[in-house]
Amino acid sequence: MPIRLIATDLDGTLLRSDMSVSERTRTALDRARAAGIHVVPVTARQPHGVRMIAEAAGFTEYALCGNGAHGVHLGTGETLFEAYVTEAAQRSIAGALSKRVPGVLFVSVREGGQVFVAQEGYAEMAHFEDHKRHPAEMETFRLDDVLAQPSLKFIVRHPSLTPRELLFELNALKLPGFAVTHSGAPFLEVLAEGVSKAWGLAKLCELLGIDHSEVLAFGDAPNDAEMLAWAGRGVAMGNAESEVIAAADEVTLTNDDDGVAAVLEHLLGQAAWG
């Protein structure tokens, strides 16, 4: 089947380590779009974080944000779909995990990613790169306020435990009603039950009339694994984590070596760069 849609993660995949889009990568993306192929960022970022690099990457159409929970058209601002973590699931997580792992803190991301409700003490742990938001500008709230409304993404963070360690503790509780992943950032990302990048990509492809066999997907982090397994052709970056490589059909170069561009050049029958 021909490729009709390219789905690409951003951080650690399309972007170099300095957060730039290389000239080689931009050229490959433009040639794919000129060939009539949709190029869709599929990211843990919220829309404002995608827009920070949209001009450099040439993104003007569809984007899947919040690990697939939020489909949006960047040009029109239209929301295609959203999936929210329930208040009940959030309260269950916060209550049980706080007892099991004292010191854990939470954030609720709401309303298309525009509202960021962080628990008191969270800003002191955060850096701009975590959420593409300046910690000094984060308004902080009591835990009850964080849990008071459903979330597009519910963030769980501990000052000393790694995301993998925190995931082990959360999974040990065997709580129902949500999905959880991590993207390489220093926290867990809780989503509505059943939601993943694969889920969001399937929703978009259904809207566009595209079969999964016509999708080429790129990723590097654990939150990309399901998407690479779902796509007709899943490509792990050379810097990808082991579970992502296991889910992929093939491995390309690292993000700093323009691994996405290398695959697209071959796909489009172009000569190698340089």
Rank of each mutant, 00 (worst) to 15 (best):
L152Q: 12
K153D: 04
K153T: 06
K153S: 03
I155A: 12
V156R: 03
V156Q: 07
P159K: 12
P159S: 11
S160N: 11
L161C: 07
L161M: 13
T162A: 12
E165M: 08
E165R: 03
L166T: 02
L166E: 04
L170H: 03
L173Y: 06
K174G: 03
K174V: 07
L175D: 00
P176Q: 06
P176W: 03
G177R: 06
G177E: 02
H182I: 00
S183H: 09
S183M: 04
G184D: 02
A185V: 09
P186S: 09
P186K: 09
L188C: 04
L188I: 00
L191K: 05
A192F: 04
A192G: 10
E193Q: 14
E193K: 08
E193R: 04
G194I: 08
V195D: 06
V195Y: 01
V195T: 11
V195E: 06
A198Y: 03
A198W: 02
W199L: 04
W199P: 13
G200E: 02
G200C: 07
L201I: 12
A202R: 15
A202F: 02
L204F: 02
C205M: 09
L207R: 15
L208A: 08
L208W: 10
L208G: 05
G209K: 10
G209E: 07
G209A: 09
I210P: 00
I210N: 01
H212N: 14
S213V: 13
